[in-house]
Amino acid sequence: MNSAPLEQLDDADLMLRVRSQDDEAAFTLLVSRHQKSLLNFFIRSGVQYDSEDLVQQTFLRLYRYRQRYVASAKFTTFLFLLARQVWIDELRRRQRRQRLAESLAAEPYEEFAAPAAPSAGVAGDLDLARALAALSEGLRQVIELAVYQDLPYAEVAEILEIPVGTVKSRMFNALAKLRELLVEKRGDTP
């Protein structure tokens, strides 16, 4: 076990401490290092209100499944595997609600919330944020992992459970689609 001060340990060493010693300080450090990137992952995935809840769920799963972690891959790969599963569970919940909402839509006293409007956050590039939100889930996740998390394609492929070649094609399609959406927004001729 690496005996350097915690702050100097990399994520994998911290996670190994959590796994073997239930080290609270190490876990706290992992939370502080990664909560922001997870938060933005969920927000960019379209979660409007509960993004911090999903971050909390992800860290709970990280703790709950700590014994499954071995340092054979990057820590972030493991973390975003968990985050993606949290997101999938959330999507399933939403889809189930949507089906029920559709079946009950005739009820006169129900009101349904409009879909969340994409937001660039504070004073941002709203056109680009909206274009990003308009991408399909599969394309947006490749952008999220390869652009924002800066993961190598091999790790993106592992998290999304697709071949590396598919990561490449999705990345190309995602960027092309974004460019197309931005051109449409400006009213230019492609």
Binding site: D22, E24, F27, T28, V31, S32, Q35, K36, L39, N40, I43, S51, E52, V55, Q56, F59, L60, Y63, R64, A120, G121, V122, A123, G124, D125, L128, A129, L132, I143, V147, Y148, L175, L178, R179
Partner: peptide, 29 residues
């Protein structure tokens, strides 16, 4: 385009998020 994507503003976690996570994990423990 990638440069523009990376320049989009990042949302900051609320000041209470860390303590909420740690409280939940303490409960899990």
């Amino acid at each position: 385009l990638v440069t523009r994507l990376r320049a989009l503003p990042q949302h900051e976690p609320s000041p209470l998020l860390t303590s909420r996570i740690l409280a939940a994990v303490a409960d899990e423990r």
